[in-house]
Design a protein around this nucleic acid. Structure first.
Lengths: 349, 349
DNA sequence: TACATGTGTGAAAACGGTTCCACAAAGCGT
DNA sequence: ACGCTTTGTGGAACCGTTTTCACACATGTA
């Protein structure tokens, strides 16, 4: 059960360790004949180089850390696939960590991964605290953040124009005749939430729809929070003919709450989400939403990261903005006829 | 930017390298005074031990590899969370790899992870080929397989009684009065598929319902295949009043196909799935399914794996069977009324 | 007093690779 | 025939740890 080392290969092929190493890395001169002998020995012994030892000398582990807040939100597996595929193509392995949106977990993971000497990080921050990211930058460890940007840190990023797309989503509802549009936000301190909220506000303002703070709630991007905040809105007695949620999971939670309340989507209340997870197209009614290219964003982040790893540490932080688009499905219905009168005094089922 | 090593700490604290190591690992004797000095040096220099070097000498990387066929199927993220949490609690890191149900990818990942000297594997095989698993066993690398077992290999496993629960699912439909029950299977060569198919057949047989091979189709556990196979069934002109799919993603695909065909679920065709992914409870109508404790299965697999890693390599392969249960939701409706006329006069309410 | 035992420390040998350096032989231009 | 470059190879230092061993000094015991 003794593991085979480079030494065994060298002995078996009757050459020096250096030569075996040269054959493996195709570095330096090796005669065709010797090379063949070495390869035969490698095959014969079924030798697998120890990457740990290799990394120790070279200082590179060919591993990147992927830190995500919630892998059960389908948006992130899509990102993860993109990261993984792009990494693999370039000979890198990915270590995926799930922070549960907990900054402490996040710190713990980063420490663990740094001790494992990962070559770089792809990161979706779980909170507004920039210290973790700053620590990486200070230590000259390449990082690319994705989806959410970090205030107070100059770092490579892959993003979309959240404000613009939230604006489009809200405008879509306004265009359908809605005026009483509720908004369920993500955690207030995330840039994603702030920007989407800003887009919502701007659309209302531009359309001359008065802003009603009672129609704005804060969730945590997860299904149950969307469900709970929607129930609160319905119970509040406020008139609501449409709701825009800052992501699909909350939008779906909201849809469910509406249906449980005895109202119909989209006839009584229209719903728009954000992300375009697979689920959005599968539910009934299917969800109108902003489609983010999650897979592509993951792949892009890896490309940027590898450029950093491979090359110039200096240079400004770069930001890539990805394209999104509004995907119109069933959850908004057609143009609203008699808005304003329909939901007066609808009670609990 | 020079990384601090144990040597720097030793110099700074004016002790030997050995002493620093002893302080870090709490091994051997160190005086209180020296220990304090060392800790102060560690803090002062912000020293982080290099796990690669550590692993190289100890031979243990405190990392486990998790190999899954499809992370976009929500069943697997749930498993992954269980694996990750249980691993973290025990000080292990998880490397998650996605094989895309491709045996070549699977082999490639296992090779890469072995070279990184992971301490063990948690595995959901993507095909019937046992050679990868056998290779690990032969090399004395701990493995636990999950969800699917491997024919021809004696290996620790975390499973459920697929046949029994497929039987329950089918019986549930039969109990509601259904006789023309279609079955959409997973890939034919997976044990999971075989067992669930066997359960379906057995239920039919026990209930005296004649088996119609034209009602059985094979998918690949993914949404589009469920959708396509259901369309084929509908187009075939066969009478179908219910369909049992070997997992939820296919069941949801089938539901969608039924609705697109202009029929209603459950009024025209009842649907049962298998897995109980979150999505199952969210869609409309919600999906009756067999609930598997995915998170728990992941955690359990890690426990078994760590026992192997820590201890007796010998001993028989152990199999843990997890509990599942039938979760009745809306997709099957209530008892079928008019099957007397419709289904050739079987039974009586 | 002498001797085992317990405590505290440092030197040096692994671990399994990469890489720098030295050296030898061969080919080549003058 | 001479030096110069190109090939081909082996020796040894090094990467950052852990761990074995040796040794020094107290302390308790016979």
């Amino acid at each position: 059960m003794k593991t085979v080392t480079i030494k065994d290969v060298a002995r078996h092929a009757k050459v020096s360790i250096s030569t075996v190493s040269r054959v493996l890395n195709e570095s330096g001169y090796v005669s065709e004949q010797t090379s063949q002998r070495v390869w035969r020995a490698i095959e014969a012994l079924n030798y697998k180089p120890n990457q740990l030892a290799r990394s120790l000398t070279t200082g590179r582990s060919r591993t990147i850390g992927l830190v995500l807040p919630d892998i059960t939100n389908p948006f992130f597996p899509a990102v993860a696939r993109g990261v993984e595929d792009a990494a693999n193509v370039n000979g890198y392995t990915v270590i995926l960590c799930n922070t549960d949106a907990d900054p402490e977990q996040e710190k713990a993971y980063v420490t663990a991964l740094r001790e494992k000497r990962v070559d770089g990080f792809v990161f979706t921050v779980s909170g507004p605290d920039a210290s973790t990211i700053l620590g990486l930058i200070e230590a000259d460890i390449p990082v690319v953040v994705i989806d959410r940007c970090v205030e107070g840190a100059s770092v490579d990023s892959v993003l979309i124009y959240n404000e613009q797309w939230a604006y489009e989503a809200t405008m879509h509802l306004i265009g359908l005749g809605h005026r009483a549009i509720a908004y369920i936000n993500g955690p207030d301190d995330l840039t994603t939430s702030k920007e989407r909220y800003a887009g919502y506000r701007k659309a209302l303002a531009d359309a001359g729809v008065s802003f009603n703070p009672a129609l704005v709630r804060t969730g945590d991007f997860r299904y149950p929070s969307g469900h709970a905040r929607m129930r609160e809105l319905l119970a509040s007695g406020q008139e609501v003919t449409a709701v825009f949620a800052a992501n699909d999971m909350m939008a779906i939670g909201a849809m469910r709450a509406i249906q449980e309340w005895g109202l119909r989507v989209p006839e009584d209340i229209a719903v728009v989400g954000f992300d375009d997870i697979l689920l959005a197209s599968l539910i009934k009614p299917s969800l109108t939403t902003i489609s983010q290219p999650a897979y592509h964003m993951g792949a892009l982040a890896v490309e940027m990261l590898l450029e950093r790893i491979g090359g110039a540490q200096g240079g400004e932080a770069r930001t890539k903005i990805c394209h999104a688009r509004l995907v119109v499905r069933e959850s908004c219905g057609g143009r609203r006829e008699e808005f304003g009168t329909r939901n007066r005094g609808v009670g609990q089922p």
